[in-house]
């Protein structure tokens, strides 16, 4: 891997069945998580289930990153805006996953970003927050086990409340901003270090960066890539004011 277009053979973390905690530098935004989800869909059939906490899911970002907008049809998402809603969604998840599997759409991945976030709000009594959160973590671990599917979590903050998330994860990846670009590391093993050399000014935006990598990976496995999509993303040209004569 080197220089300007050196992402040949770039690998995103390979997800195994079970709970994976992904710790992403906040400066990197939601893109690394979106990239991991989309990458999984490039390589696996089936559906991603995205249980969102308070508007983390940005369909615009997913659309911009996805090699083809069709991938969004394969992401089933529901958002909790209170801890209570989030907890209900996770209660509902096993049935939703099971129903989809019966319909011929087995789960490829389950993702719960900022899993701990809503349980920190003022409307949840402290003693209940942990109980609700740990109960739903068990639900997710159960889905991972029974469906043999990867479950990816991220946490809003690293502290006592979110500690069970790390404990439940059989694998933890970090994604850090380095001067060479974003870099995934597997905790406790140095064989999984993945560095994207982005070189000198190759990368204008992280969006473009991830998009490039995903397109490349999609082509490598012959997954659909939308070649016409780029023009649609261009901003419109400004028009001169239409003010009539005499003004």
């Amino acid at each position: 891997m080197n220089g300007h277009c050196g992402h040949d053979g770039v690998e995103l973390p390979t997800l195994d069945p079970g709970v994976t905690l992904l710790d992403v530098d906040s400066s990197l935004g939601v893109e690394p998580l979106c990239a991991v989800v989309l990458d999984r869909l490039l390589h696996e059939s089936g559906r991603a289930f995205w249980v969102d906490a308070g508007g983390h899911v940005r369909t615009r970002t997913l659309l911009q990153l996805a090699p083809h907008r069709r991938y969004l049809d394969r992401i089933a998402t529901a958002r909790g805006f209170t801890a209570y809603q989030h907890a209900s969604l996770l209660d509902r998840l096993p049935r939703v996953v099971s129903d989809a599997a019966v319909d011929g759409d087995p789960p490829a991945l389950v993702v719960a970003p900022a899993m701990d976030r809503l349980y920190r709000e003022d409307d949840v009594p402290r003693e209940q927050a942990r109980e609700l959160l740990v109960g739903r973590l068990a639900t997710l671990a159960g889905v991972a086990r029974e469906r043999e599917v990867p479950v990816v979590l991220t946490r809003h903050r690293d502290d006592a409340l979110s500690e069970p998330l790390a404990a439940a994860a059989h694998e933890t990846y970090t994604c850090r901003a380095t001067r060479f670009g974003p870099r995934f590391d597997a905790e406790g093993g140095d064989d999984e270090t993945l560095v994207y050399h982005t070189g000198d000014g190759w990368m204008q935006t992280t969006l473009a960066f991830w998009r490039e990598i995903l397109d490349h990976r999609a082509r490598a496995v012959d997954a659909p890539v939308d070649t016409a999509g780029d023009t649609a993303r261009r901003p419109s040209t400004p028009a001169a004011p239409a003010t009539p004569e005499g003004w």
Partner: peptide, 19 residues
């Protein structure tokens, strides 16, 4: 008392249109 009722799952494509 508590806001338990969540939204239903739908595809990210539908969410994008709806949102």
């Amino acid at each position: 008392w508590r806001a338990w009722r969540p939204e239903f799952f739908r595809s990210a494509t539908t969410l994008d249109t709806a949102d």
